[in-house]
């Protein structure tokens, strides 16, 4: 009975499981980008940060367990930490460059995509083949006798962490003094300056913290799902997550929903094909993008600009 086919139930289960498995990278990167953009800067380079994070997490997890004698339960966590730190280094570069006079942060971001992925590919060569210890999972599917359900409910602790960070960040923006600084710097730098807040420092910290989160997002990819390091591991997820922030109207809670939605959408195509629905599989595979466009069209209004956008977003510092 345990191995019985799920039939049609496999589709919702697949999408649900795909949501739990695949949305963590989106979540971390979009939260990181949300923080960055709230302070008025855009960091497109998070795609590169994601790859660097994935590579360094995998490398450290492998080296730790195999070469340095770190217990294999601990070395993936070390990898996560190092991934975050690697992200911070890239974030520091972006923060420094993009705040130079007359520097466009989009252009710097594109450069950072190339730089970050280049770094990851360069140092990642020896780690494509080895197997690194993976992060443990929290199994909450023990009540079910069906292996499919059990496997769907193997949840990554990082995902849970991300789910907690989202409301925390919303609260941070809304109710804390520092959150006010970030919003002030992003919405009206002049006002922030009048408050005596250093625009540069706030932005620098926001970009670095955001990149830390994106680096951890990379660790989700390489140490949890799909759990390998390869050069095509991100397949553009970092860039999609940056777009997600606009989709989520710069609101961390909505970032969470949007990430879940995108994570689940990745599973639609394979889940439907597994029950034999072949028609329009290209459309199903494009589902996340089609849905984004649809929602953008439905929610847009010719009468007002995007609500929630930080006022100084993308302005070039003189």
């Amino acid at each position: 009975m345990a191995a019985e086919a799920l039939g049609w139930w496999g589709v919702p289960l697949g999408i649900f499981a795909g949501t739990l498995r695949g949305s963590a990278p989106f979540l971390f990167v979009s939260l990181g980008e949300c923080l960055t953009e709230k302070s008025g800067k855009i960091n497109l380079g998070l795609e590169g940060t994601l790859l660097t994070g994935a590579m360094s997490a995998y490398a450290i997890s492998y080296l730790g367990a195999e070469k340095w004698g770190v217990p294999s339960a601990l070395s993936p966590w070390l990898g996560v930490l190092v991934a975050g730190c690697a992200g911070m280094v890239l974030g520091l570069i972006h923060a420094w460059l993009s705040q130079q006079p007359k520097v466009n942060d989009i252009a710097v971001g594109i450069a950072m995509i190339i730089f970050g992925s280049g770094i990851a590919f360069f140092f990642g060569k020896p780690f494509i083949q080895p197997k690194a210890p993976q992060l443990p999972t929290i199994d909450i599917g023990g009540w079910s006798t069906m292996p499919a359900v059990q496997s769907a409910l193997k949840i990554s602790p990082l995902f849970i962490l991300g789910v907690f960070i989202a409301p925390l960040m919303a609260w941070f923006f809304k109710s804390t003094r520092w959150g006010l600084f970030v919003r002030a710097v992003g919405d009206s730098p002049d006002a922030a300056l009048a408050m005596g807040v250093s625009i540069k420092k706030v932005r620098m910290l926001c970009i670095i913290a955001g990149s830390f989160l994106a680096g951890i997002g990379g660790a989700c990819l390489s140490l949890y799902y799909p759990g390998i390091w390869s050069e095509s591991i991100s397949s553009g997820q970092g860039l999609m997550a940056v777009a997600l922030v606009i989709f989520a109207r710069w609101n961390p809670i909505q970032c969470l929903w949007a990430s879940l939605f995108f994570g689940g959408a990745q599973a639609i195509g394979p889940a439907l094909q597994a029950v034999g629905i072949e028609q329009g599989r290209y459309l199903f595979n494009a589902a996340p993008y089609v849905l984004t466009l649809l929602i953008m069209i439905i929610t847009c209004s010719p009468k007002k600009t995007l609500s929630g956008a930080p006022g100084a977003l993308g302005t070039i510092s003189g």
Partner: peptide, 23 residues
Amino acid sequence: IFTGDWSLPVKEAEATNSLADQG
């Protein structure tokens, strides 16, 4: 299951999981 391209790690993992779900 056709994933659509030569190297799409996440989709390949999803495809394998979906197949396993189907017994």
